[in-house]
């Protein structure tokens, strides 16, 4: 099962729901990896929506592509990375007409980044359906060098840009689609606790 119950946290940390088909003229689904399962489950309950659906999917090494295609969405794109998919996402959103429903599922990094594009296009973030599935890895911003490190699974971790040892905070910015990483050994350089897997 690809679902995870996140422990209760601070108010800036995003919370996710369960995708539910909404009444709408058209549907845009953006998913990565195990996020496909949330789309498949929604489609199983509401197969008729697929005729008006555009699915953008980033497999990240998983094998759900054929199952998603078998849903026969009106439009389908499978991309090698989020960066590769983002220009298509922007293009689709720039054409969005009233009555478009948006569904995001998969990792927090995918949901956060797609939500940012959706907000930039003028949608209210509270009007978007989101569901977390799969990896609990986080997209982290180093508060010091501002570099983003994708798919962080351990705390503390080393910034992939400036090399500082960073503590993984729950403080989250929608605008950056990232959690905040702060130097853990600033007061005692070199005193870095052993890294542990997130939520372990």
């Amino acid at each position: 099962m690809s679902t995870f119950n996140f422990p209760e946290s601070i108010r800036s940390r995003p919370v996710y729901g369960t995708l539910q088909a909404q009444v709408g003229k058209s549907h845009l689904m953006i998913a990565d990896a195990h996020g496909a399962e949330a789309v498949l489950e929604m489609a199983a309950k509401e197969p008729a929506m697929m005729a008006q659906s555009h699915i953008i999917y980033i497999p990240k090494g998983t094998q759900f592509g054929l199952q998603i295609q078998a849903l026969k969405p009106a439009q389908y794109y499978e991309g090698p990375s989020y960066a590769a998919a983002v220009s298509r996402i922007k293009r689709v959103l720039s054409d969005a007409a009233m009555g478009l429903q948006i569904y995001l599922s998969g990792t927090e990094g995918l949901i956060g980044q797609a939500q940012y594009e959706v907000m930039q296009a003028g949608f209210d973030y509270t009007a978007i359906q989101t569901e977390h599935r799969g990896s609990v890895a986080r997209r982290m911003q180093c508060v010091h060098c501002k570099g983003i490190t994708e798919d962080v699974m351990i705390d503390p971790f080393q910034c992939s840009h400036c090399g500082l040892n960073l503590f993984v905070r729950d403080h989250y910015s929608r605008r950056l689609a990232a959690f905040q990483g702060v130097c853990i050994d600033a007061e005692e350089p070199g005193n870095v606790p052993l890294s542990v897997e997130l939520y372990s």
Binding site: S12, D170, R174, L176
Partner: peptide, 22 residues
């Protein structure tokens, strides 16, 4: 606290890291 990180947040979100007060 970082303006660059917190810009765009609402009152509860930018205060989220403060303990006890919520």
């Amino acid at each position: 606290w970082s303006l660059d990180f917190d810009i765009g947040m609402n009152f509860f979100e930018w205060h989220a890291p403060v303990p006890l007060a919520h």
